[in-house]
Computed example of a mutant assay.
Amino acid sequence: MPGNNKSSKGLLIALTIICIWLLSFVLLMQWHFSFKNPLAYLAVFWMMHLYTGLFITAHDAMHGTVTHDKKVNTIIGQLCTALYAVFPYQKLYIKHHKHHKNVHTDDDPDFSEKGFLGWYVKFISEYLSWWQIVLMAIIYNLLKLWISEANLLLFWVFPSLLSTLQLFYFGTWLPHHGEHTNKHFSRTQSKNHFVAFISCYFFGYHYEHHETPHLPWWKLWKTKSVGH
């Protein structure tokens, strides 16, 4: 029974993030905003954070930590990657586990010896394909039939792009660039749970994630030790 409760909690958290993203998307697509309104730019970062939440939820699904039901776990992962940018979940699943198995080596799809920009481009190219770009362009042009282009750009396109930078910076660049002396070739954010959540759903506690990949993002803060 305790295991079922934990599984239900993880699924509830995942569904909450998905529902908040969907509700925010629907409302913001209907908003007759002004570019002079500072709330519009706050909404961009709100959506960016929710996009990151979608990806982090998919990431948990890849580790089987959303729910103990494998089929439901996969469905949640597929839904989140589809909403994020029609990413093929299985491709991300394979590459992410390859990252954990071969971290900081030539076989690590997330690793590069290039500088920040070059690494970011390489990181994106590992996961983005031309058919995705074409499909997203089709979806964009279809949505334009009913939704203002300004709303689409400001609250759909830009937040998703910013989210890729957020995920890369806090989840790949900061923890994995440079030299390392630990077995996970990873550093970690200083212990500040508020900052860790706001920055990337505790994903900055990256050494801890590699040490305990079986834990969902919302439990990761509990593993944070003073020593790292």
Rank of each mutant, 00 (worst) to 15 (best):
Asn5Phe: 10
Lys6Arg: 15
Ser8Asn: 07
Leu12Gln: 07
Ile17Gln: 14
Ile20Ala: 09
Phe25Pro: 01
Leu28Tyr: 13
Met29Leu: 12
Trp31Tyr: 14
His32Trp: 06
Phe35Cys: 02
Lys36Gly: 06
Phe45Tyr: 07
Phe45Gln: 00
Met47Arg: 09
Met47Cys: 09
His49Met: 12
Leu50Asp: 09
Tyr51Thr: 02
Thr52Gly: 14
Ile56Gln: 12
Thr57Gln: 07
Met62Arg: 06
Met62Ala: 05
Thr65Gln: 05
Asn73His: 05
Ala85Ile: 07
Val86Cys: 13
Gln90Ser: 12
Gln90Tyr: 13
Lys98Phe: 08
His100Pro: 00
Lys101Trp: 06
Thr105Arg: 00
Asp108Ile: 00
Pro109Gln: 01
Pro109Ser: 00
Asp110Thr: 15
Phe111Val: 01
Lys114Met: 06
Phe116Asn: 03
Phe116Ile: 12
Tyr120Phe: 15
Lys122Pro: 04
Ile124Met: 13
Glu126Asn: 13
Glu126Gln: 12
Ser129Cys: 08
Ser129Leu: 07
Trp131Glu: 11
Ile139Thr: 09
Asn141Lys: 10
Leu142Phe: 15
Leu145Phe: 12
Trp146Arg: 10
Glu149Lys: 14
Leu154Phe: 10
Ser160Phe: 06
Leu162Cys: 05
Thr164His: 11
Leu165Ile: 10
Phe170Lys: 03
Trp173Ile: 03
Glu179Gln: 08
Lys183Ala: 08
Ser186Pro: 00
Gln189Tyr: 13
Ser199Val: 03
Phe202Ala: 14
Phe203Lys: 15
Tyr205His: 04
His206Asn: 03
His206Gln: 12
Tyr207Asn: 11
Tyr207Arg: 04
Tyr207His: 08
Glu208Thr: 02
Glu208Lys: 02
His209Thr: 02
His210Asn: 00
His210Thr: 02
Trp218Asn: 06
Lys219Ala: 12
Trp221Asn: 10
Lys222Met: 07
Thr223His: 01
